[in-house]
């Protein structure tokens, strides 16, 4: 599966902490050699002195992401409901015009 194999976050953090065994280490480094994204990410994360802070950053970012998707959904829903309002208003207006037209014509015929 091209570009789709999963990168295990736990493994990445273990790699940073130096707690992978030899086989796991080799497998992980093979993945690094295969993926520029993973390689760059590891190089970047290695520069963070306090490795425990990484978890906090990721958790904060995921919360923020959740807020972004929720607000985008809300905005989309709002747009949809405002479009629905105008559609319903237009239909009601057309019906009112038809009813008024009908009675006006009816009245005109009766008086003639």
């Amino acid at each position: 599966m091209k570009s789709n194999y999963k990168i295990n976050e736990e493994q990445l953090l273990k790699y940073l902490n130096g707690s992978l065994n030899n086989d796991e280490l080799h497998e992980f480094e093979k993945k690094m050699a295969d993926s520029t994204l993973l390689n760059d990410a590891v190089e970047g994360l290695q520069t963070i002195k306090n490795k425990t802070s990484i978890d906090h950053y990721v958790s904060d970012l995921n919360k923020q992401l959740h807020e972004f998707t929720t607000s985008k959904k809300r905005r989309r829903l709002k747009n949809k409901s405002s479009i629905n309002f105008w559609i319903i208003a237009s239909i009601v207006l057309i019906i009112i015009i038809c009813i008024i037209g009908y009675f006006t014509l009816d009245l005109t015929f009766k008086t003639n």
Partner: peptide
Amino acid sequence: IGILLQRYTLLLFGTCMKY
């Protein structure tokens, strides 16, 4: 998209740290 992006949060953070 949220689920997809969440898979990459750590990698994105690391990549940004690199640069």
